[in-house]
Structures are given as structure tokens and as C-alpha cells.
Write a protein that binds this DNA or RNA. Structure first.
Lengths: 160, 160
DNA sequence: TGATTGTATCTCAGTTCTGAGATAAGTTCT
DNA sequence: AGAACTTATCTCAGAACTGAGATACAATCA
């Protein structure tokens, strides 16, 4: 019978304390993100949308027609991803592509009338759902968390 | 020429302020998560690993053999996902499945000798990389952020 | 002007999942 | 013990991407 190879588990306590704290922050950040995201997913799925699709719709709803490259930067998807998302939304009749007069390579995405109507209908409920999801923090804690996360996110952004 | 349908963009300022704050927190949380995650992705990819694969390896490294269901809960993947990840890691020779004596339905995953060696080699660098990624916050800010995110994450967790 | 370089989008093969249902085993009732 | 229920993992079709390379256009340089 082969002897089972089972070394004692490694502990993080042999790491420098700053690294312990950093890892703990990263794990906690990931868990919090996941927990809130699940609320967002559950909400948009009721309309047959993915999070990516909703992110595009919401951006167009609040900004009006937007170049695909600009959408890509804002919602953080790959070049293939933005083409895919706009294709799907176009198939669903919620978004249309428009030529850009200044640059014939570029294209705008914009909400169709139907897309616009959909967002007017579902966005308020979505906002409520997110508000519910983050109720674990008081108003002032939410401000603190937002400030810290903004600072963290900006500093961590990879140079493109 | 068809008239272009272009309603004025919606603003969030007509939402209740608590909803405005909640949405801002959610967007900022997502951006911060993404920014830090990209560092983690870039690091583990150098070893040909995905984030999910690394998460499994790291868990086994720090906890020793673990039931698949327990891994699933901890790294937040679907039932199909954990089977997929352990399959891949088994193919790579980094992990092995073991029978559970108390429950013949259940299975442990454990690091192989090679998996153990890999983690001893790459984990310290990974920890350094994450530490770099969250340098935007001071030690005490990291503590504050961790506390707020833990509170947020726990409150947002969906009942299973 | 032509050549070179840069940029915006698209294509497409491949990756990493999800989630519904299947299977097998454990648990709790009668 | 047998039935009914629950639980752990696996299967598999398909969703939602990624990223390298292609294409087409734009901008800059010699």
C-alpha cells in the first residue's frame, strides 16, 4: 500500500505582517464583490440579461450613444467581448450600431426605443436591489468604503 | 432620412441619495476588485494557471486535503466548476483525488508532491504581488477596508 | 504622396466557467 | 427493511467570455 504524501499544511503566519494583511484584504474584497454581484446577477437575470449586457445598457442609458471602444474601457471587457455584447443586444433589439461621422472605423452603440423603455422600467428596481445588498454598511460607512475602494482601485490599476 | 431616436440620457440624480450612494459603492467595489484581480491573474498566468486553479491549490496548500464540496463553498464556484478545476489540476499532476472513508459519495482533493513543491515556489511571489497591488492603502487603511468589506460581504451573502 | 505606424472593430478558436439533471450513497421515516 | 428524502459529485450542453490575429481606416513621417 503506497504511503500517502501529506505534508503539514503551510501557514500564512510565517509571512511578513504586511503581506498577511494584504492577502486578507484581497480575499475579503473578492468575497464582498461576489456577494454583492450575486444580487445584481439575480436581478438582471429576471429580464434574461447577463451582467455584461446590463452594464452596456446602463452605460448607454446614462450617457447616450457611446463609441464601442469607450464602452469597452468603462465596463472592462476585452475587444472581442464588446463586439459579442453589442451583437447580442442588437439581436435582442435593445441596442443599435451607428456610424461615427468623424471616424469610419469607429461605431457608436445606442439604445433603441425598446432598449430605452426597458431600462426605464428595470433600472429603478435594480437600484433598489443594489441598495438592499449593501445595507450591511451605514451611510457613513458606505462613504468610507467608497473612498477607500476608489483609492485602492486607482492605485492598483495596471498601466495599459 | 430616418430621424434618429435619441432621448436625453437619464441621470442618477433623480434617485434617492441612499440609492445613489449604494450604486457608487457597487461600481467602485467592482472596479477595485477588477484592478487587484488583474495583478493576481497576471501572476498566476506565468505558471500557466487560471485564478480558479490557483485558488484551489492555495486552499489545499494552507488546509491540507479538503472535500470537494468544502472547496466549492470556499472558492465560490458551481458544482460543475469544482469538478472541472480538480480534473484540470489532476491532469497537470498537481492534485489528486482521494476516497473519503466516512462517506463514499465524497472525495478529498489533495496536493501531490509536485503540487506542493510548486506552491512552495510560487506562493511567496504571489503574496508579494498582491501586497504591491494593494499598496494604494496604508496599513491602517487596509485594516479599515478589510473590516468594512467583511461587514459588507457578510450582510450581502445570499441565503443558500 | 507613399510608407509607416497607430487605432477601432471584428473574427474565431479556445478557455473557464454555470446550472440542470443524473448517479450513487447516506439519512430518516415509517 | 423499504420508502422517501437529502447530499456529494459528475456529466454535459451551452453561456460568456478572452486574446491573438485580421481588416479597414486614420495619422504621421520622410
Amino acid at each position: 500500500m503506497p504511503k500517502v504524501h501529506d505534508p503539514p499544511p503551510a501557514t500564512t503566519t510565517d509571512l511578513p505582517v504586511d503581506q498577511q494583511a494584504a492577502l486578507k484584504l484581497w480575499v475579503t474584497l473578492a468575497r464582498a464583490f461576489n456577494a454583492v454581484q450575486q444580487h445584481a446577477v439575480a436581478d438582471v437575470r429576471r429580464e434574461g440579461l447577463s451582467i455584461g449586457e446590463f452594464a452596456v445598457l446602463e452605460l448607454l442609458y446614462h450617457r447616450g450613444q457611446t463609441l464601442l471602444g469607450e464602452i469597452q474601457k468603462r465596463i472592462l471587457v476585452s475587444s472581442g467581448g464588446i463586439t459579442f455584447l453589442v451583437d447580442r443586444l442588437e439581436q435582442k433589439g435593445l441596442v443599435e450600431r451607428r456610424a461615427c461621422p468623424d471616424d469610419r472605423r469607429a461605431r457608436y452603440a445606442a439604445l433603441t426605443r425598446e432598449g430605452s423603455r426597458l431600462l426605464r422600467r428595470i433600472f429603478p428596481r435594480h437600484a433598489e436591489r443594489i441598495t438592499e445588498a449593501v445595507r450591511g454598511l451605514s451611510a457613513s460607512e458606505q462613504r468610507d468604503a467608497t473612498r477607500l475602494l476608489k483609492q485602492l482601485g486607482l492605485a492598483a490599476e495596471l498601466p495599459e
